[in-house]
Design a protein around this nucleic acid. Sequence first.
DNA 1: GCCTAGCGTAAGTATTAACTTACGGTAAGT
DNA 2: ACTTACCGTAAGTTAATACTTACGCTAGGC
Lengths: 101, 101
Amino acid sequence: MTYHDSQLDALGDATRRAIVDRLLRGPSSVGELAEAFPVSRPAISQHLRVLKEARLVTDRAVGAKRVYQIHPQGFEHLRTYFERFWGDALTSFKAKVEKRS
Amino acid sequence: MTYHDSQLDALGDATRRAIVDRLLRGPSSVGELAEAFPVSRPAISQHLRVLKEARLVTDRAVGAKRVYQIHPQGFEHLRTYFERFWGDALTSFKAKVEKRS
DNA sequence: GCCTAGCGTAAGTATTAACTTACGGTAAGT
DNA sequence: ACTTACCGTAAGTTAATACTTACGCTAGGC
């Protein structure tokens, strides 16, 4: 199954990219994230849901808190997609163009 | 200069990703692209402008037509960004997580 | 010179998506 | 049990963006 479309959609928003950057520095609760960004906590929750559905983050309960963290497997999936992209489609395109010049 | 943000924004739309896929099979004029997709020609033009500003495509005049094609350099820039992402941020995050488990 | 083909852009509309407020539900402390 | 902290979601609003229609410009054929 290819869910890199939802992953690219998820990364197509600046706030969500900022959340990812933040989570790369370590796991974080929703409240902590909400304090770090100029949007409300529900807005953060909704962004996290998009990222979670795209398999870019995971969450777990820690007491009453809910801690989110990067999901490396999801990013590996995206990486595989890009590797194939660079390796197949893009280089074959470059070869095609250079041949014609 | 880092313009991978605009590149991720550009790739965050399904129609633009489809246009990119189409252009990977070879250069194409605006009219040809418009026939391949269920949107009007001006809509295609606007998508192409976004892709062009993100340095993902280039265009050139061929008679009265305007031919668009993939811009490998722009994609290389994105690739460099991701390589750094995989190599630095993601692996250091994974190390941090595994150390704690 | 005139006409047609092919596009870009401006302007306005419609659809999507990001956001806020309000509410309810669970977990731990007292 | 009651209270507080923390969060998800529903509902509604606002803002962003994808879209269409209308128009004007340039290139090439006649």
